[in-house]
Simulated assay, not measured.
Amino acid sequence: MEGAGGYPSAAPAPPPLHPAIAPLFFLLGKWRGQGEGGFPTINSFAYAEELLFSHSGKPVIAYNQKTWKLASGEPMHAESGYWRPKADGSIEVVIAQSTGLVEVQKGSYDAENKIIMLQSELVGNASKVKEITRAFKVVNDELSYVVQMATNITSLQPHLKALLRKV
């Protein structure tokens, strides 16, 4: 049945899960929590965060992230992209950040232990950032991650870490 403007009047049923993303089914959904960041060249900070991993029935997971200041709720950062897991345990990821920076990452996943490790192949449109790694892990329905970064004046160092729960 159609509603106004030819759009369906009821939400469509979710598409079937593509077999290629089935090993990362544990990521799908909305996650919220808090994190902290820092780097030798900036002051430390705390933030709240929401991650959304979704799918459209294709062999790719859509990724959306946003953060905001804990005290004021003021927006801080946002990024989005796509994760393409492969049957051999490898994964390809592209992420565009609100700062204009773009990451092309490759890595691996361990579906049994719910771990994803990513390493930048390319960091585009970044005058200072040279390398980014991301490590995600789900334990007892909590998603934790650590982001490390290297710049033109620093080696690879911790930058962000957070703990989120599925909502």
Rank of each mutant, 00 (worst) to 15 (best):
73 G>V: 13
134 R>Y: 04
142 E>C: 09
55 H>R: 07
112 E>H: 08
123 V>W: 04
123 V>F: 01
71 A>D: 13
90 S>K: 11
50 E>D: 06
141 D>Q: 11
96 A>L: 12
60 V>P: 00
129 V>E: 03
108 S>Y: 00
138 V>P: 06
147 V>M: 11
115 I>T: 07
52 L>Y: 01
140 N>I: 09
105 Q>D: 07
103 E>N: 08
95 I>A: 00
111 A>I: 08
131 E>W: 00
120 S>V: 03
139 V>F: 12
114 K>H: 08
144 S>G: 13
52 L>Q: 08
45 F>L: 12
133 T>G: 02
133 T>I: 03
56 S>G: 14
133 T>Y: 00
90 S>M: 03
118 L>W: 05
113 N>M: 04
74 E>H: 15
124 G>I: 01
52 L>K: 06
91 I>E: 00
76 M>H: 10
100 G>N: 08
75 P>L: 13
73 G>H: 14
67 T>F: 03
119 Q>L: 09
80 S>M: 14
88 D>H: 03
151 T>P: 05
61 I>N: 04
90 S>V: 05
86 K>F: 05
66 K>Q: 15
61 I>Y: 00
68 W>L: 06
71 A>K: 15
96 A>D: 06
130 K>V: 12
88 D>Q: 05
105 Q>T: 02
121 E>D: 14
93 V>F: 07
147 V>W: 02
149 M>I: 10
73 G>A: 13
57 G>R: 05
133 T>F: 02
117 M>H: 07
45 F>W: 11
149 M>S: 12
100 G>A: 10
112 E>Y: 03
127 S>E: 13
87 A>H: 10
93 V>E: 00
58 K>V: 05
68 W>Q: 08
54 S>K: 01
131 E>V: 03
48 A>R: 11
94 V>S: 07
66 K>N: 08
